[in-house]
């Protein structure tokens, strides 16, 4: 049996999984920033109960396997709170995002704490409120410091997104498994999928590094962390 023509036949279908996989990844990264940044601020500047709450959240989401989190939310928590109608894709993206927020919050926290204390003192001495100082002086610096570490979350989330297969999200790995079932061709299909993941992985990282270079400021950035 000649494998190559079959592989080429199925390639468009295989590639259709890319958009779904990237959708999961970007939703998760976005949610991760949206939740992770405020969580980091809460952990650094918040009152004790807030710091505690964030600490427990981080401990919970970082302590559990992604598979268990997906099962817990897909089969358990979401149906139990009346969100059983959500699609597997949405649940997958949300769970990856909630977990991403736990990891990313710690990257942002480290970055915020690494901004020297003098920056806040100088900002306050000019009459800025604490809020303005955080927003206009601390955060712009912290985000730049955090970016290299944050970029490294991309490959982690990308490879973890494949676990969404377990709750039936139609992403790259699910489509791969389907093609394998249909064609009974295994290794070439798997390797093709692996190739796509590798391209997405390192290609995406390259783009992120380019972004880092773009917003680089003299005396600042990738070397800082």
């Amino acid at each position: 049996m000649d494998v190559l023509p079959i592989l080429i036949d199925w390639l468009p279908y295989l590639l259709s999984g890319v958009s779904s996989t990237l959708g999961l990844v970007f939703a998760a990264l976005g949610l991760g920033v949206l939740l992770g940044l405020p969580m980091a601020l809460g952990q650094v500047y918040g009152a004790r109960p807030i710091r505690w709450a964030v600490g427990i959240y981080v401990w919970f989401f970082r302590g559990l396997p992604i598979l268990i989190l997906l099962f817990l939310f897909w089969f358990g928590i979401f149906p139990a709170i009346g969100l059983g109608h959500l699609s597997a894709f949405v649940v997958g993206a949300v769970v990856l995002g909630l977990r991403g927020a736990a990891y990313q919050s710690q990257i942002f926290r480290g970055a915020i704490q690494s901004v020297s204390e003098g920056q806040m003192i100088a900002a306050r001495s000019l009459g800025m409120s604490r809020f303005t100082a955080i927003r206009s002086v601390i955060l712009p610096q912290a985000v730049r410091i955090a970016l290299p570490g944050w970029s490294n979350e991309y490959p982690n989330i990308l490879t973890d997104s494949a676990v969404c297969y377990a709750i039936g999200v139609v992403e790259l790995l699910t489509i791969t498994a389907r093609i394998v079932t249909q064609t009974h061709i295994t290794i070439p299909i798997y390797l093709a999928a692996a190739g796509i993941f590798i391209v997405l992985n390192y290609g995406g990282l390259k783009l992120l590094h380019r972004l880092e270079a773009k917003i680089e400021i003299p005396g600042f950035g990738s070397g800082a962390m």
Partner: peptide, 12 residues
């Protein structure tokens, strides 16, 4: 290995 999801590796 780092570029590929572990689950895919297990399937292979």
């Amino acid at each position: 290995i780092k570029g590929t999801p572990l689950l895919l590796l297990l399937f292979i």
